[in-house]
Design a protein around this nucleic acid. Structure first.
Lengths: 210, 210
DNA sequence: AAATCTATACTGCATTTTGCAGTAGGGTCA
DNA sequence: TGACCCTACTGCAAAATGCAGTATAGATTT
């Protein structure tokens, strides 16, 4: 029985369509470029091209340079066909895994300082992501895009990331002010401030863009 | 060897701290309230309270009503202690799984219509999430919060979701206009429009909030 | 009164994905 | 020449998902 192709298979296949890569390059390229939309483990990314070969969507060439070996994967015509077919299937809904938010929802088990630390940690993570994308856009202007014919797609993609990160950073600033005004993390309930906030949200107004 | 506790164990444990729940109630409550910050499968959520019992963080009471049985889980003192300890561990970085973005990054394998359909599908998913949170805020004003002393936490949490969903919806509108202006999905490269966009992003300016 | 539908209340099993440790060659720099 | 980092993976246990299956109870429809 051949393996089944998952969205991750198509992610790797789409990279292979750009040029042949070695397994090592694929894992690193996929993590660099897809990290914020399709985060997958190195281990999985090593397995995916093997599955593609089994499916007939890629071929592998075992190279040996001196005493070292590596696997170079190349897309096949069937692989290109599969990529095209992929476009007509239904997209999976997005999934947002944000442990920081989980911790904040249950922040009443810790101190105000614990809650503020969670915000700091989230901020660190987001700022790291944010900076590396802004820098990437800089290199597109200087040295150019590695696949210039695809710049329009990469830039639309990057716009999403930057908007999202900016938005989260603004929420963090807002949340920090809120939490700093709490006398404690517990049993505050419906304060006048929280009620005002709830009214805004129930009318689908943004508390951050008044 | 006892099982290890994961962030999902603490998510369930934190729910148990509010009141005792049956396995069935836990799975549904966790999916309703945590879906957008900590999305977990029903199957896992049935397993977690069993692990908590093994760890000594909860006790289980097998009830039989007529011919039906159910498991009622209650947090222990040790469980409360573990929850408190949890607050001093490092938060995992957020993970955003957005297949729609993956497909858009490789939209050159399909037509412009395929790309627009992906945007429509993402919009449907996000709008569903968005609406249910706005409605939840409405019920907080009308019928009140099920755990009133925690309203300040829930509302801060909901603020994040609503800001995020609004932001994504704005990006979808922006992306739709962009894609509609493309003559094709392929080989556009660095159009004047894309270059202007790249310049904005490289300076960390928002193209959506000019 | 019987049939159907929906909610309650789970469990088992195969598959997918992750995390981590382990193995090993090659290049650089002190 | 020893330390350290980059390349280049593999094996295995554990975590998580998806899906099918089992069964009771109450409400609604025919």
């Amino acid at each position: 029985m051949p393996p089944r192709s998952t969205p991750s298979s198509y992610a790797v296949l789409a990279l292979l369509d750009l040029k042949p890569w070695t397994g090592y390059e694929l894992t690193h390229q996929a993590q660099r470029s897809l990290r914020y939309a399709w985060p997958k483990s190195e281990r999985l990314l090593y397995s995916e091209p093997k599955k593609l070969v089994e499916l007939g969507f890629a071929t592998v060439h075992h190279e040996t340079i001196g005493n070292r070996s590596r696997n170079l994967y190349t897309i096949t015509e069937e692989g290109r066909h599969a990529l095209h077919e992929w476009t007509s299937t239904r997209t999976e809904p997005p999934r947002f895994e944000i442990e920081a938010l989980l911790r904040l929802l249950f922040a009443d088990h810790g101190s105000r300082e614990d809650a503020l630390r969670v915000l700091d940690e989230l901020e660190d993570d987001i700022e790291g992501h944010h900076q590396s994308i802004v820098e990437l856009m800089g290199t597109y202007l200087d040295g150019g895009h590695p696949f210039p014919q695809r710049t329009h797609l990469s830039v639309l993609f990057a716009t999403f990331q930057i908007e999202m990160f900016k938005n989260i950073e603004r929420w963090i600033t807002f949340a920090r002010v809120e939490i700093e005004e709490w006398p404690s993390t517990q049993d505050l309930g419906m304060t006048p401030r929280t009620e005002a906030l709830t009214r805004l949200l129930a009318q689908d107004h943004s508390p951050l863009n008044p």
